Computed example of a mutant assay.
Amino acid sequence: MAAGNHSTVTEFILAGLTDKPELHLVLFLFFLGTYVVTVVGNLGMITLIVLSSHLHVPMYYFLSNLSFVDLCQSTVITPKMLVNFLTEENTISYPECMTQLYHFIVFAIAECHMLSVMAYDCYVSICNPLLYNVTMSYQVCSWLVVEVCMMGLTVATAHTGCMLRVILCKATIINHYFCDFLPLLELSCSNTYINEVVLLCFSVFNILAPTLTIIGSYVSIIASILRIYSTEGRSKAFSTCSSHISAVTLFYGSLTFMYLRPSYISCMDQSKVSSLFYTIIVPMLNPLIYSLRNKDVKVAFNKIIEKRPFCIS
């Protein structure tokens, strides 16, 4: 069905992060640098895991998938935002807006569940180490990743399908730097009750369910660590999950503030800042967190550098 059948608006203007033109160049350079670090960091992490045989274990298999999700998430948002900093009118067509919304939801939901899967992997490795190879077999890991992808696709299809039925005609300006669900609903001239119910249900499930999984996993992990008598053993066990804890705190903190806050404290300027964390900042920080705080990654990187096949004669 054509976009015009769903909405009287065929093109939107993205308000962006600021209405001060003098800041656009500074913001462009900052987010260009952020995107370059994101691409290099996540592609580097994926390449390192693929090339290093001793990283071919479930933990790094999930980490490579997380890096792929982060790379895609940032690519859905950042290039369009960079272009908008350099143009006078930050326009986006209706089909482009719906496409951006769909892919944003896919990768945001995938990251939610991938982080919970990684928490479960930490739980099994620390609390049931003797059964680790059986519990986290190649088949189990593959199915977990497939389920994460299917969850993202299902939620994105439901949200985007509900959005396509909404008539957007109040204005053409989206008060955000990308096509997000809540700013689009503000432009609706039709009843959005179904959209809000679907958003609330999926938000509760896709934020609270993984959060409870992560909390449950770490309660068991902490209990197991406390039963370890040696300081060295405790330190080693904690270092296994410390990077994941940092990534979870950053991602879920910003996501919860955006989608589960009460409506009476809604503020789009605060929402933009919150959105920046889980769409741009977190995808950049994740590979840095996992590389700087992980000895296995450092060792693998040093081995790759030592084995470089080129030299200058």
Rank of each mutant, 00 (worst) to 15 (best):
Leu185Pro: 00
Lys236Cys: 03
Leu144Asn: 03
Ser230Ala: 07
Leu288Phe: 10
Leu130Arg: 06
Ile207Cys: 05
Ser74Cys: 10
Gln73Met: 11
Ser220His: 11
Asn206Phe: 04
Val69Ser: 04
Val219Pro: 09
Leu168Trp: 02
Phe257Lys: 11
Ser313Tyr: 11
Pro95Trp: 02
Ile312Pro: 08
Gly161Met: 01
Cys112Phe: 00
Cys201Ser: 10
Leu164Tyr: 15
Leu115Gly: 07
His159Pro: 00
Val36Asn: 08
Leu168Gly: 14
Val39Asn: 01
Leu285Ile: 09
Phe301Glu: 07
Met150Ser: 04
Asn206Pro: 04
Ile77Lys: 02
Leu101Tyr: 02
Val204Trp: 03
Leu130Trp: 10
Thr78Met: 07
Thr75Gln: 03
Ser239Tyr: 02
Thr34Tyr: 06
Gly253Gln: 02
Ser67Ala: 15
Phe251Asp: 00
Met150Asp: 06
Thr78Leu: 03
Lys236Arg: 04
Asn191Cys: 03
Ile221Asn: 04
Leu276Thr: 14
Ser230Trp: 01
Cys112Asp: 01
Val282Phe: 06
Asn90Gln: 08
Leu25Val: 10
Met45Gly: 08
Asp269Cys: 10
Val69Met: 04
Ser274Leu: 11
Cys189His: 06
Ser224Gly: 13
Val155Met: 05
Lys295Trp: 09
Ser263Pro: 11
Leu276Trp: 12
Tyr264Gly: 12
Tyr264Glu: 15
Ser235Glu: 07
Met114His: 01
Ser266Gln: 15
Ile304Asn: 11
Ser116Asn: 00
Phe68Met: 13
His54Asp: 15
Phe181Gly: 07
Tyr193Arg: 13
His176Gln: 14
Asn286His: 12
Ile215Asn: 02
Val273Arg: 03
Cys169Arg: 12
Ile173Thr: 15
His56Gln: 15
Val140Gly: 04
Val145Asp: 02
Thr135Val: 13
Leu144Ala: 02
Ser243Tyr: 10
Tyr120Ser: 06
Ser125Cys: 01
Ile228Cys: 12
Val273Cys: 10
Ile214Phe: 01
Thr18Asn: 12
Ala158Lys: 03
